[in-house]
Design a protein around this nucleic acid. Structure first.
Lengths: 346, 346
DNA sequence: GTTAGCACTCAAAAGTTGAGAGTGCTAATA
DNA sequence: TATTAGCACTCTCAACTTTTGAGTGCTAAC
C-alpha cells in the first residue's frame, strides 16, 4: 500500500484483471469471469465482495444492477498511471531532433498518421511542428510577371512557403537584388518572434521607395507562420466504427466531425504542448480531454521535437477501453521510425 | 409520348409526384398520398393501377408487399434527365475561365467545398484543376545552402510548387544565372505534355556538366504536376448521418472512408472529366457511380474550367432521394460565385 | 477469511398482438 | 371503356409480455 490509491495488492490485481478483460471484450465483466483468472485463485463470491469494495472506492461501476462492472474514469486513470510508471524511463530517450531534410515533411507526417491508424485500429492525428520559433534560412523575391513578385521563404527544416505579392510596376533586376540582399542579411537566422517593430522600421527605411514591398513580404512571413495555419494530418477516423460504444449515430457524427474540421483538434495540440512537465506521453481519459466532443473517448498524445523548439503532436483517439499498453509501445516505435526516416535521406 | 421512355403524360405526372414526395419524406409513398395531389384528380384506386404499370416498367418498386412505392434507379434517372433538359441551356454558359490570381486557390477551393456542404446538407468534394495542360510561367533555382538548391516552379494560374534539389557542391552565382536563363527561355509557356525527350536532351546538352541538376529539376516538374498528386478538398462528410438510409454503420463507414482516403474519389474526378459529351452537370444514380462505395448514393458532379484545358471537378454526394433541383441550382450559383471571387481580387 | 448456495434483479432476446398503411381484385358506375 | 368504391388480405412497426441468462447481494457453513 505504498502508493496513495489505498488499495491492497489483491484489490489491485482484481482491478487490473477487470480492466484488461474489459479492454478485450468491451462488455461489463462479472465476478465469475474474474474468478476463472489463473493467477488469483478465488471464488466468484470473494471476487464479488472485493468488487463491491472497489465500487465503493470509485474505481469501477455498474451500468445497471445485475450487470458486470466496467472501469470508471478513475479506474482507467489508476491503470494508466501504473503503466506509465513502468514505461517512463524508456520513453524519455526517444525525443530526438529529426531536423533537416524535410522537403516532403507533409507527406511523411501524413503517412505517419496512416501507419499509426493501421497499426492501432484507432483514429490518429499528427500535427506539423509549429513554426513559431523556427528560424528563417533563406528569402528570395523574384519577378514572375509585370505585376507579380513571388516571395519564397525557406525555414530551418526546409519548410518552404510562398507568397505572391502584387506590385504596381515591375522592379528592375538591380532593385530586386538589393532587396533580396537586404532581406537575407537582416533576417537570416531569425525566428518570427525575433522580428520586432524596430527591425521592421529599419528594413523599411533601408528599402526606401520600395518599403511597401518589404511590408508585404514581412506580412507574408508572419502570415505564413501563423499558429492557426497549424497543419494537422489525420487518419483512421472511421476506425471508431469498430467500437460499438462510440459508434452510435450521435457520437460517431461528433467525433468524425472533429476529424473533418481539423480546427477542432487544435485544442488538443495546444493543450498537449502546454503541459510542460510531462513531455513524454500524455493520456486524457473521458472528461479529461481538451476536446469536448471526445468526452467518451480516451486520447493519448505525444510531443515530438525537431530541435530548436519546433514541436508537434501525435495523437491517438479511441475508446476508453483502449489498449493503452500497445498504443504506447506503438507511439514509441513510430517516433523511432520517424527519426530514422528523417535521418536516412540525409 | 415523344420521348423514348414509353410513358403517357399521366403516368409521367404520377411518377414525378411519387419521386418528389419520396424526396421529401424518405418514406415509401402510397397510392392514397398521390391521389390527394392537387393537379391530378384521381382516386387512389386509379393511382394503384397506374402504379402497378409503373412498377412493371421498372420505374418504381416496393420494398415489400403492402408498402408504398419508392423510385428505382431507373425512375430517378428519368426524373433527372427531365430536369436536365429543362436546365440545359442555362447550364452551358457558366463554364467560364476563372484563371489568374490564385495564390490562395487551395483555400478558396476548400472554402467552396465547405459552403456547398453547408448549403445542401450533403457531402461535397472539390478537386483542384489538374495541371496536365497547364503552362509553365516561371522557374527559378536558388542556392539555399551549401548542399541544397530550391527550385521554384510557377504555373499559369499562379500555382506554385517547390522542390529541394541536393547537390554535391554549391553552384556559383554565374552558373545559377545561366541555368535559370536556360530553363526559362526553353520551358516558358510549355505544358508538361509539351516537354518531350528531345527537349530534355537539348537542355541537358546545354547545361554541360550541370546536366544532373537539370535532370533533377525536370523530374521535379514532372512530379509536381503528377495526376496522383490531384488535390481533393472535401467537406460535410458527416452530413450523411442526416439520412437514415445511409447512416447504418456499414454504409456510413464506407462512405466516410472514401472521404477520408481521398484517393478513392479520384475515380470520380477522372470519370467526370472523361465524359466529354456532357460538360455541364452529371448525375450518377446508385450503381451508375464510379465509386463502388457510393452505390447507395447519388452523386452529382460538375466540371469547371480555368481555361487552357485546366479543369477540375465539383461533386455532391447524398442519398438517392437527393433534392436534385436544389443541388443543380446551388452548383450553378457556386460556379458564379467562384467566378466572381477569382476575378474580384484582380 | 473464504466459499457455496439461493433468491432476486435486470437487460436483452424472443414471442405476441393490434393497428395502420397499403395493396390487388372485383363489381358497380359514368 | 375508363374510373372508382369497397373489401379482403398482407405486411411492417410499435407496444407489450415472456423467457432466458448473466450477475448480484446476502446468509450460513466451512
Amino acid at each position: 500500500m505504498k502508493s496513495n490509491h489505498g488499495l491492497d495488492d489483491r484489490k489491485l490485481k482484481i482491478l487490473q484483471a477487470i480492466i484488461k478483460t474489459y479492454l478485450e471484450t468491451g462488455e461489463p465483466v462479472g465476478s465469475r469471469t474474474i474468478s476463472k483468472h489463473a493467477d488469483l485463485n478465488l471464488s466468484s463470491a470473494t471476487i464479488r465482495n472485493e468488487m463491491a469494495d472497489l465500487e465503493d472506492l470509485g474505481y469501477i461501476m455498474q451500468p445497471h444492477t445485475s450487470a458486470g462492472r466496467i472501469p470508471s474514469d478513475r479506474g482507467y486513470r489508476l491503470y494508466v498511471d501504473m503503466l506509465m510508471e513502468e514505461k517512463e524511463q524508456e520513453v524519455t530517450e526517444m525525443r530526438e531532433q529529426m531536423l533537416e531534410k524535410a522537403d516532403k515533411m507533409d507527406q511523411i507526417l501524413k503517412q505517419a498518421a496512416k501507419v499509426l491508424a493501421a497499426n492501432t485500429n484507432y483514429a490518429t492525428m499528427v500535427s506539423a511542428p509549429s513554426n513559431n520559433r523556427n528560424k528563417l534560412k533563406f528569402i528570395q523575391l523574384s519577378q514572375v510577371d509585370d505585376e507579380q513578385i513571388i516571395a519564397v521563404i525557406v525555414m530551418e527544416g526546409n519548410i518552404i512557403k510562398n507568397k505572391i505579392v502584387t506590385v504596381d510596376e515591375p522592379l528592375d533586376n538591380e532593385t530586386l537584388l538589393k532587396l533580396n540582399m537586404l532581406l537575407n542579411t537582416n533576417l537570416n537566422g531569425m525566428s518570427i518572434e525575433d522580428i520586432n517593430l524596430g527591425m521592421i522600421a529599419r528594413l523599411k527605411e533601408q528599402a526606401g521607395i520600395h518599403s511597401e514591398v518589404i511590408s508585404d513580404v514581412l506580412d507574408a512571413v508572419a502570415n505564413v507562420i501563423q499558429v492557426d495555419d497549424l497543419e494537422i494530418y489525420t487518419s483512421g477516423a472511421t476506425n471508431i466504427f469498430k467500437y460499438p460504444e462510440l459508434s452510435d449515430k450521435q457520437s460517431a457524427q461528433e467525433i468524425i466531425s472533429a476529424f473533418e474540421e481539423k480546427h477542432q483538434l487544435v485544442n488538443l495540440v495546444t493543450q498537449t504542448l502546454a503541459e510542460e512537465e510531462n513531455k513524454g506521453i500524455q493520456v486524457y481519459i473521458g472528461n479529461e480531454t481538451p476536446v469536448q466532443t471526445m468526452r467518451d473517448c480516451s486520447v493519448v498524445t505525444a510531443t515530438y521535437e525537431l530541435g530548436e523548439g519546433m514541436q508537434g503532436t501525435i495523437g491517438i483517439i479511441g475508446p476508453k477501453r483502449m489498449d493503452y499498453e500497445h498504443v504506447m509501445k506503438t507511439l514509441k516505435t513510430l517516433m523511432a521510425e520517424l527519426d530514422a526516416i528523417f535521418h536516412k535521406e540525409h
